[in-house]
Design a binder for these strands. Structure first.
Length: 210
DNA sequence: AGAATGATCCTCT
DNA sequence: GAGGATCATTCTC
């Protein structure tokens, strides 16, 4: 089985397409010889200034300017006093869009991640965007890193992601409208727990695309 | 199962 | 000076 690192061209496509293709890929952070990472199970798309939930909806600022840059870079954001969130910039330079990494199934450096998170259960390591960033030691220090480089990157090992579902996004109130831009792998134990009104909006991704 | 609450800090007005 | 793409814990039904 051949393992390849995703190249710039992968990210330089419509964000929903990139988000769907990211599921099942291996997200990896390599630091001080410590390798941690896992298989992506849940992501959310934030697309353009017209998306009221997107950080770019109020125009370009020093904080979000990286979303306007080239695709395939890491955008890290800090929120709620406690948590970092990792995003992947998509689409061509000049168009602000990103994919929020919400959850993954631990694969590499599991013991290191358990220690960082202070938990034992696999499902507790990265079943949410804040947890994931903590497990992989992603902070604003990693903001702006090139995902085609050798510190933070994404691998394709050819495995199939399984059935992909989509729903409304979490934690953005009614701003998201009818956009079902939260994508996740169906019946995967590492997907974060969604409130009832989110679950009700869930559909197969294929159906939503058509 | 669902709602409420604090932790606590970076970014823009 | 306000608010936020969250989490774990602590409640109530």
């Amino acid at each position: 089985m051949k393992i390849t690192k995703l190249k710039r061209a992968f990210y330089d496509r419509p964000t929903l397409q990139v988000a769907g293709d990211l599921l099942g890929k291996l997200f990896v952070h390599e630091e001080d010889g410590l390798i941690t990472g896992g298989r992506l199970a849940e992501v959310e798309a934030y697309i353009g200034e017209d998306d009221p939930a997107c950080h770019a909806s109020c125009g370009k600022t020093p904080r979000n300017e990286i979303m306007y840059g080239k695709p395939g870079f890491l955008y890290v954001y800090f929120t709620y006093g406690n948590h970092y969130l990792a995003n992947i910039v998509t689409e061509q330079e000049g168009f602000p869009a990103a994919v929020l990494i919400r959850a993954l199934e631990p694969v590499l450096g599991i013991d290191i991640m358990k220690k960082r998170r202070n938990v034992e259960k696999l499902e507790a390591i990265a079943s949410g965007p804040g947890k994931l960033a903590q497990a992989l030691a992603i902070t604003t220090e990693q903001k702006g890193l090139d995902l085609t480089g050798s510190v933070v990157y994404i691998l394709d090992d050819g495995k199939n992601a399984g059935n992909i579902c989509c729903s409304k996004r979490i934690g953005i109130g009614e701003n998201g409208g009818d956009r079902l831009w939260r994508l996740y792998i169906e019946s995967n134990a590492h997907v974060s727990k969604a409130p009832g009104y989110i679950k009700k909006s869930a559909k197969p991704f294929r159906e939503y695309c058509s």
